[in-house]
Design a protein around this nucleic acid. Structure first.
Lengths: 140, 140
DNA sequence: TATTGTTATACTCTATAACTATA
DNA sequence: TATAGTTATAGAGTATAACAATA
């Protein structure tokens, strides 16, 4: 497949780290153009359907009290609404407003467009996908 | 090379995002065992040699006032020292203490050990390295 | 009693602007 | 004047603990 020089694990780790840093900075700058932080953008992405606060916290692997703050800011901007669930009045469903739907689609467009991928061939992309899948399987 | 099903760009982007999230969470938990945050750990990694504050800010692409705070905390823990440069008394060189050197080596070990890579063959790792290099070349 | 969500508190990181000391 | 670094300030995200409302 490839008989070039063999990079060390440290070199590969360094390259993955560099990739992560650049991508994160890139995505941050792009969602900032929509007036969003990354946690806010990621919270929008989780709202494919309406969800209670505690389920959002579960998906984001963070404490429920964080979700309160992020939802507060999204709600202040008119992107989401809190709706008490009639069956169980303890629960508040978070739902996207129409403007929230639009913002979510824009965020989705940003996060789906990894700049480094655009000039790769289909075969290269498939190889990368498969290798990442192998790596992911062993990533905690 | 690979004649399996062709994933869409969105699927690959999703996988890269998932990889990033997991790796970041993994590294965060590991450096937290050393009592460090990621910005603190990354600042240690930059100190291969002593550096002035403003150069650290340049390498981290952040404002100089941030570096003041992070160095404050590292200094309070005895991991770094500020030394005024005699030639130009405006400049403070940040140098690792012995304990800082030890912490830096531990952080280096953590960041060089990407868990998903350990069970891949050399050929697979080389392919991944080359594909990431290709992708990086087009990542701003 | 247990669950859901909020509030109070505290800490880190982030940027901007004003400041001090030095060149 | 310009540069290096700090401080003051403000906002966002994070976790923990205490709390109110509901089940």
């Amino acid at each position: 497949m490839n008989d070039g020089p063999r990079p060390t694990q440290e070199q590969i780790a360094g390259q993955i780290g560099e990739m992560n840093r650049r991508l994160l900075a890139y995505f941050e700058s792009k969602v900032a153009e929509l007036g969003l932080t990354m946690p806010q953008a990621e919270l929008l992405m989780v709202l494919e359907t309406a969800l209670p606060m505690h389920e959002i916290a579960g998906k984001r692997h963070c404490d429920a009290s964080n979700v309160t703050g992020i939802v507060d800011r999204l709600e202040a901007r008119g992107l989401v609404e809190r709706r008490v669930r009639p069956n169980d009045r303890r629960i508040k469903e978070i739902v996207l407003t129409e403007e929230g739907e639009r913002a979510r689609r824009r965020v989705d467009g940003i996060l789906s467009e990894v700049p480094g991928l655009s000039r790769m061939s289909e075969a290269e992309r498939t190889d990368l996908f498969d290798l990442l899948a192998r790596a992911l399987a062993d990533t905690p």
